Computed example of a mutant assay.
Amino acid sequence: MKKLRFYLLTCLFIVLFSACEDPDSSPKALLNVILVDSPAQWDSVFVEIEGVDIDVLVQGRETQAQTFYLEYKSGNKRIKVSELVGGTQLLLGRNELPIGLITSATIILGDNHSMFIGEKRYDLELSDPDDNRVSLPTSITLEQGISYDIILDIDLERSIVQTSETPLAYGLDPNFKLVEGKGLVELEGNLKPTSLYPAIYMWSATDTFSTHTNTSGNYIFKVPMDKYTLYFDPKNERYQDTTTLILDLTAVRDSVLEDITFKVKP
């Protein structure tokens, strides 16, 4: 669901754990930070992520604000985010945190980002090279003994910007969305022909999500229960756009849509 938006969703995990080295015995909750992608038309996109800072108002005799760093523990921190579609997701970090209230998650980026269009590589410089931190406010209450998921959805369609026409150059203006994994509805479907790079947009009265298909034409959304409209953009002028009517996802847990085949324009 184009948002280099964090609800980024899937069945195939790259599991990289953050070490839990906390000697105290105070009540804890387990936090998983998961990355998914709403990919764009690019063939391959790599984004370097160092880790995530989690700000917590720790519950105790006196509420205290503390920051916990969840490092992405990989020798190569360049993540091929364009593959995180169709249910595939990446575990960025995991750790036990004290009970309290999460107020924000801050993604800490590196400086080695790039993409490929065909065989041509383009380096992606941050729109602000001096600012490699993307802060996402939230409000998630941590209770003892419960595991929580934070989903970070990166919207590549909005994050990759053309900075020059001659010579052709692109930059990275990172656009993330944060969604709590609890209480989400999973919506999936399939688009044909699979040779296209279609974009799927899903919006309610309060929020918008987007995603792309994998090589088999499958797509998956994980969204809060609500009423949504879906719009399918083939990203190809030879084919007609397809818009569905409102979907009521307020009373169901999961839903599978019928396969959709884009029609060639007359």
Rank of each mutant, 00 (worst) to 15 (best):
F6G: 13
Y7P: 13
Y7N: 12
T10K: 12
T10Q: 10
L12M: 05
I14E: 08
I14K: 06
A19K: 09
C20I: 04
C20F: 09
C20L: 07
P23I: 04
S26L: 15
P27E: 12
P27L: 14
L30M: 02
L31H: 02
I34P: 01
L35V: 03
L35E: 06
D37R: 04
P39H: 14
D43K: 06
S44T: 11
F46I: 07
D53M: 02
L57N: 09
R61E: 10
Y69D: 06
Y69S: 12
S74W: 03
G75A: 10
K80F: 03
K80D: 02
V81I: 15
E83S: 15
G86Y: 01
G87W: 09
Q89M: 08
L91Q: 13
G93D: 11
L97N: 01
I99Q: 11
L101Y: 08
I102W: 04
S104H: 06
S104T: 02
A105C: 07
T106D: 05
L109G: 01
D111R: 11
H113W: 08
F116Y: 15
G118R: 09
E119A: 13
R121Y: 04
Y122N: 05
E125D: 14
L126A: 10
S135Q: 14
S139N: 09
I140P: 03
L142K: 01
I151V: 06
I154S: 07
L156M: 09
R158S: 14
R158H: 10
Q162N: 02
Q162W: 02
Y170I: 00
G171V: 01
L172R: 06
D173N: 14
D173I: 00
N175V: 14
N175Y: 09
E180F: 04
E188T: 14
G189R: 03
L191Q: 05
Y197T: 15
A199F: 11
I200G: 08
Y201M: 01
W203M: 11
F209D: 00
F209V: 05
G217T: 02
N218M: 03
I220F: 13
F221W: 08
P224T: 09
M225W: 00
F232A: 09
N236Q: 11
T242Y: 15
T244K: 02
I246E: 15
I246V: 15
L247M: 09
D248G: 00
L249W: 02
L249G: 03
A251D: 12
V252Y: 00
R253L: 05
S255G: 00
S255M: 15
E258R: 10
E258I: 00
I260W: 04
I260A: 06
K265R: 15
P266E: 08
P266T: 02
